[in-house]
Design a binder for these strands. Sequence first.
RNA 1: GUGGGAGUAGCGAAGCUGGUUAUCGCGCUGGCCUGUCACGCCGGAGAUCGCGGGUUCAAGUCCCGUCUCUCACGCCA
Length: 596
Amino acid sequence: MEEAFMKRTANCGELRAKDEGKEVILNGWVHRDRNHGALHFINLRDRYGMTQVVVDDDADAELVKRASELKLEYCIAVKGKVRKRPESMVNKEMPTGEIEVKAEKIEILSPSDTLPFMIEDETNAKEDLRLKYRFLDLRSKGMQDRIRLRHEFIKAIRQFFYKTDFYEIETPTLIRSTPEGARDFLVPSRIYPGKFFALPQSPQLYKQLLMVSGFDKYFQIARCYRDEDPRGDRQLEFTQLDLEMSFVTREDILDLMEKLFREVFKKVVNVELPEHFKRLSYHDAMNTYGSDKPDLRFSLEIKDGLPLVDITSFQILKDIKEKNGAVKFLVAPKKEGFDYTRKYLAELEESAKIYGASALYFMKAEDGKLQGGISKFFEGKNDEVLSITGAKTGDVILVIAHENWKKACNSMGAVRSKLGADLNLIKKGFEFCWIIDFPLFEYNEDEGHWEAAHHMFSMPQSEYIETLEEDPGRVKGDLYDLVLNGYEVASGSIRIHDVELQKRIFRICNIPDDMAEERFGFLLNAFRFSPPPHGGIAPGIDRICMIIADQSSIKEVIAYPKNTAAMSPMDESPAEVEQKQLDELSIMIKPKKDEA
RNA sequence: GUGGGAGUAGCGAAGCUGGUUAUCGCGCUGGCCUGUCACGCCGGAGAUCGCGGGUUCAAGUCCCGUCUCUCACGCCA
C-alpha cells in the first residue's frame, strides 16, 4: 500500500556532517526559496530548525517543475540524500550548515496564500495583525523560542516540586468570588438561572482549605482571571505557580523560593543566582528607589532631602516640611557625551509629574558651585549642599517635594527609572530582591475606608495584633513580594487562621460580619476546625518568562493573544449562545449519512 | 475613565511650511542566472492616503467630528 504522503524520517534541525549519504525524508515549511535557474535552494523549516534543500542541475523535469511551483510557507515533503556542502559553502550560522539535502522528490502537502506578513525571527508587523494571524506569528523563531522557554520553565518548576513532598492539586475554576481586589469574570449558570459563577482571581481560598484538610504542602500551575484593563505585562488571563505550606514561617517560604529559582534559572537559562536574595523593607525600597518593585540592576539611590530644607530660602520646600511632607533628592551623575539640557530636564519632570509631583527642581554642580534652577535659594550654602548631596562637577541635583510621602517617592522613582534607561546604567542579568514588611492596610480615599493592601487573609505582624484597630495604617503585615528587574514576580503572605482575627480584619476593611459570613462563610467555617498555621506565595509565570525573554510583552510569551485570551468577546447574549451551541453540538453528534 | 502617539499598496515606512505622475524597502508577478543562504539582475501589477464633513483655485498635508490601534496613568499587584 502506498503511503498517504512522504512521512519524515528526520527533522529539519538534526542532520549533521556525520549523516552524509543518508537517504532522508523531511517535512516542513518553505522558509526561503532561492532559484538560480539550474540550481535551486530551499530553506526548509520546522520547529527543530532549518535545513537547506538543493534541487541540483541534474534534476529531472518533474522535480524542476515541482520546485518551481513552491512559494513561501508551502508545507512540503522532500525526499533526498544528505551530502556535505563544499568546504567554502558551509554556513557557520546554521546548526545544519555543514550539510544540505539533495532533493530527489518533492511533494506539496499543502499550499499557502500570500502571507499577510513575513515569517521572520522578529517581525515588525503591528500587534493586532500578528494576533489576527497568531498561527503565522508563532511560526517565527523568536516566538517559537518564547513558547519553548515557557515550556522549559514550567517543566523545571514541576521537576523541582516532584522531588519534594508537595502534592500537585488542581482547584476548581467555576467558583464563588475570590476577593483579590480585582473585578471578577462571571459565567452565567444554566442550572441556576440568573445566577453566576466567578472565575478565580487566584486559588487563594481553595489552597487555604487544602491546608485545613491537612495536605500540608500543595502546588499548582494555576490559571487566574482578572477583569481589569490589560497592559504589556498584564493579561486578563494569566498563569502562576501557586503554592501553600502548613506549619511554616516566612523564612521557610522565602528559602523555598530561593532554592526553586536558583535551580530553575540554572536549568533554563544557565544563570547562577545568589544563594540568598537581597531584602528590603517596603519603606526602605520606597525611600531609596522610589518604588515597591525597584530595579536593582543599577544603584542610583534616592536620598532624604530634609537636611537641604534646613539651609534653603526656598519657601515651597519649607512649606512641604511644615506640613510633614517628604522632600527627596537624587544626584543625576555626569556622563560623558550626555548633556542635562533644559529639554532633557523637562522630560524628566514630565515623568515625575505622571506620578503626582508638581515639579522637579534642579541645580547643577560645577567646580564647587551650584548653578541654575533653584541654586539661588542656597546662596552662600554651596558647600553644605555639595557635602549633603555628594554632587560633583557635572552632576545635577534633582529635588522633589510633596505633601504625600508615597507620591514624592513614586515620582522620584520614575525619574530614577528614566535616568537608568537614558544613561544606560542598567546592567544585563537578573536582580532578584524581596520586599518585606508591607503595610497591611491602605486607606481608600474614594471609598472612605481602609482596605487590605494585598488581600484580607494575610497575617498582621504579631506586635500589632492587639492594637490593630487603633491605627490600621501603621500595621505591618507578614507579606512579602519577590521583585525581579523592576517587576513584581511573586506575592505571598502568612495567612490568618483564626476566625476572630479574620473577622476583625474584615471589619476594618468595612465588611460587616453578616456580609463576611455570606461571602466567605465556607472559609470561616473551616477555620473553626483546627486550621494549621500556614502561608504561601504565587510567582507569576508569564511575567518571569517575559523578563527572561528580554522583556517582550506577555502576549508574546503566553500561548494566547490579548483581550479574553483566546478570542475577542462574543456579541450574543449568553442565552442565545447557549441555544446556538446546543444546535451546533447536535449537528456534530449526528453522523453524516454517507459516513454512517 | 484621563492623557499622549499613530492610521498612506499584502507588510513596514517616507511624504518639511498645502501645488499637478504619492516615494522607498520587503512581499506578489513576468523574465534571466550553476553555489546561494536576507542570493543577484531587468521588467510589471498593486493605494478612492481609516471613515465623514469643512476651509481652499488646490488637501495625504490645515480644521472639526468619528472609528480603530497603541502607550502611559487610573484601575489592577
